[in-house]
Design a protein around this nucleic acid. Structure first.
Lengths: 151, 151
DNA sequence: TATTGTTATACTCTATAACTATA
DNA sequence: TATAGTTATAGAGTATAACAATA
């Protein structure tokens, strides 16, 4: 069978340097997914529950948590419900606006959060095994990159 | 209230260079989640459906797809069902082992996959706005990092 | 009127366990 | 017996729309 029109289009233009760097970063990150999930399971936390915990080093209103989790406001209700049932967070009414509810970590919540944070922070082999020089250069470049982020 | 035992532990040891680089990378990647989801929604694809499509530049058996998606084998059945209903993939029996089913992209599947790939490949501002020199250094370091990955 | 958070709904993804058809 | 894929089930996350309380 001759090359189809679809296959001909397949030959894409070469990646820019930035695009290649981005895709490599994406690949390294994706490879860590099983580890992330395993960490959550150790604490019997679903992925978004773990992420919510991570976001709560300071008390936050539901809406802010929704933005952090990149999901709809209505989903946060259930996620916080489950964390609350396990005694990891509390809903606390805000003084300035009685519509707002602040989500606050309990002591147990703080404990679990710190442990998760410690585990996730461990760099993957891909990065840990880079030369010291590469690690420093990588860190500095990424610091500059993050300064470019909208916020 | 005096500093609780829990709060005292909060003061964590400083991050290693590798750990800081990893966390910065994690943060840049996480910031792209809304964009990833928006791309999926444009094509009316749930996240894992999009990821499955991306993995199928070559035909793969169900089990291999499960590994790539970092989920149980049984989930892939439903994901492939939905892609098949939309005419994006086909199940094809493997010749060498009649238990195995190869998942193959249709022409439409190839078309959608290429478009998604193109969109995801676009680097985020954080990286695109780095100096050319930083971009090159970042790419080279990440290439070396990926060579450290198990596979 | 607008906003914060909740509820109801329907769909997707998830792991586990039991099943089938092959090997 | 072991493996590839499916089905059944129950729980979690998802967006949408309608709602209550408050601003």
């Amino acid at each position: 069978m001759a090359t189809s029109p679809v296959e001909r289009v397949e030959k894409r233009t070469r990646l820019s340097t930035a695009a290649e760097a981005w895709i490599l970063m994406h690949r390294i990150h994706w490879a860590e997914k099983p580890r992330f999930m395993a960490i959550g399971q150790e604490f019997d936390l679903a992925p978004q529950q773990g992420m919510a915990l991570r976001a709560l080093h300071e008390p936050r209103p539901m809406g802010e948590l929704a933005k952090f989790l990149a999901c709809d406001n209505s989903n946060v209700t259930g996620i916080v419900d489950r964390l609350e049932e396990r005694g990891l967070v509390e809903r606390r009414p805000a003084e300035h606006d009685r519509r707002v509810k602040l989500i606050v970590l309990t002591e147990e919540g703080h404990r679990v959060r710190r442990e998760i944070e410690r585990r996730i922070t461990e760099p993957p082999r891909a990065i840990a095994e880079l030369s010291k020089q590469d690690q420093l250069a990588l860190r500095d470049i990424l610091r500059r990159a993050l300064a470019n982020e909208p916020r």
